[in-house]
Design a protein around this nucleic acid. Structure first.
Lengths: 329, 329
DNA sequence: ATGAAAGCGCTAACAG
DNA sequence: CTGTTAGCGCTTTCAT
């Protein structure tokens, strides 16, 4: 593959001029430009990003940290990030941490090694201390999950309010015994969503049986199943007739367990999920769920990180959610 | 952030020695090495990949082309690719083409620009002509989908045999009226899977009603639903009692449509999918499906492309599949 | 409007 | 065992 020198030689100009042509500098005479363009075409020349990057000490690569690529919640966000990034001349390096600190540190080093210009972190189990430390030297934004006191700008939704709306919907359709399948409360969004649940229950004078709140270890299908099993095994008088799960996958696990028990949704148990992943519409019955504007979140995070890279001031953003009522309630 | 010069100065050695320490050259005296290591630690130095890459004209980045990140079929493969790549000192650039030629060409340019050292293509709708052209200049391997006469090495399974096994299983459990929900036959795997279907039917002297073969436009849930609707709307005498769908998502769509019609799986219609995506185990009933060794496919593709980058000779690989019998049959 | 040349950070060949 | 130096491919000042 030809390099800039060969193009320059072929066109009978200096490498500087070739560079100027490629960077649309308007200080190149039309005639010269034509000559150069012809040489570029003949040699099928493409500039090496490596050379340019080294010179400009930028890579135009963005690191996107997610816990797991198989979690469909992230796919729409990533679409948004990718579309925006490409438009602005950046590419993304998708990094799956598996919530594994070793992997995380490999990825963190990528920015130290200047292979990436900035990080969009969506990993709730990220090492906050390291993240904050890194953020003091490199451009970082958080998407969806964030650290309250980290002083790193973020894009997210109001989780407490969203959970409140979901539970209020269950109450409005006549439910009183409402359980919460929540994630480990070491995560901020889990704490916030519980607050929303409690708030709605309190507002309508419904008492919460402590057995109705189940915290899962992971966000997997199996965790949802297990949680629902525990809830269904409660004595008749205490058994909940509605469930709010803080993620669609948990809700789908719960749905499965309800079906296995020969019960029906929503007749015997009403069910609300969270995230509006594609599969929430494929179950039978389809899942009522809280929709986050995932694509938009992605676009905004990408914009935010690129602005930060360019040294602009950025502000955190809290977006609106939406309750999508479907067959499960 | 410190660079190699500052470390050299601080340690009182030349940059070459610092480089040697970092690359574990064993021609460095213990005492010198210690001095350098101390300087590295004090300055918190990390070498710039950019400089190294430019010098070695390699980026240690791998391009992975997939049509859509939201298709769970690819997630396990990507896990395999990523684990292997990281182990061998490479990172991956996940590229979603959306089957969009414009995006594809952006990604193809990444390798022309030397931002990537090789490509793993998993996109069935890739522009074959461009791919072949590129493969003559750069390291490329294909995973899962491949071009028969492209002479680009690949990792895949025997699709015809896998489909044959799936249909044979349906026949063995007494099914005779077996429909095929297939993808557009411009794709090789779709043609191969139909051949397997036909072969099994022929072997057991079952005639195939032309109305039983439905080719979808896309591989989405909605396509599966639509296909199943058409099949269910056939006159009573022709209506199939079993369906083989060439992808789990299509099968899940079919399942949904069957449920909507008030019919039951497997009592009224038996159902087999393909891919063993995570969600195939979350439906009610769970889906019988053909399992591809996706993780392994990923590992092997990564190994293959890295070997190719290093100039080694590589051989295409055909892996075994497995029929996973669950509740839907 | 164009060219010469420095330099981004690193590695490797060569010399000592 | 260590230092000197050229150069990877590009952009960008500074001259002209």
């Amino acid at each position: 593959m030809a390099n800039i020198q060969e193009v320059a030689k072929k066109a009978g100009v200096s490498v500087a001029t070739v560079s100027r042509v490629f960077n649309n500098s308007n200080t190149v005479a039309k005639k010269t430009r034509l000559k150069v363009e012809q040489a570029i075409n003949e040699l099928n020349y493409e500039p090496s990003v490596l050379g340019r990057n080294l010179r400009n000490s930028e890579s135009r690569l963005l690191l996107v940290l997610i816990p797991s690529i198989s979690n469909p919640f992230y796919t729409e966000i990533i679409n948004g990030i990718e579309d925006t990034a490409i438009n602005l001349g950046y590419n993304i390096l998708l990094c799956e941490t598996d919530s594994n600190p070793h992997r995380e540190s490999i990825y963190f080093n990528l920015i130290r090694n200047r292979l990436a210009d900035g990080i969009i972190s969506m990993d709730p189990s990220v090492n906050k201390i390291k993240l904050v430390e890194l953020a003091s030297q490199y451009p970082i934004v958080q998407c969806s999950e964030f650290d309250e006191d980290a002083n790193i700008s973020y894009v997210t939704i109001n989780n407490e309010l969203a959970a409140y709306h979901a539970v209020k919907h269950l109450i409005k359709i006549g439910q009183k015994k409402i359980a919460l399948i929540n994630y480990d409360e070491k995560y901020l969004f889990a704490r916030e969503r519980r607050r929303g649940y409690v708030k709605a229950m309190k507002e309508f004078d419904l008492t919460i049986d402590p057995d109705w709140v189940y915290n899962t270890e992971d966000l997997d299908f199996e965790d949802g199943k297990r949680a629902m099993r525990v809830l269904l095994d409660l004595p008749e008088s205490k058994r909940p007739t509605a469930v709010f799960a803080v993620s669609d996958i948990l809700a789908i696990g719960a749905l499965k367990e309800i079906n296995i028990s020969g019960l029906q949704v929503p007749r015997d148990v009403a069910l609300v999920g969270f995230d509006k992943i594609a599969f929430s519409n494929m179950t039978h019955p389809t899942l009522t769920t809280v929709s986050q504007p995932m694509y938009k979140m992605g676009c905004l995070s990408a914009n935010m990180i690129i602005n930060k890279i360019k040294g602009k001031q950025v502000e955190s953003i809290i977006l609106d959610h939406e309750l999508v009522i479907r067959e499960s309630t």
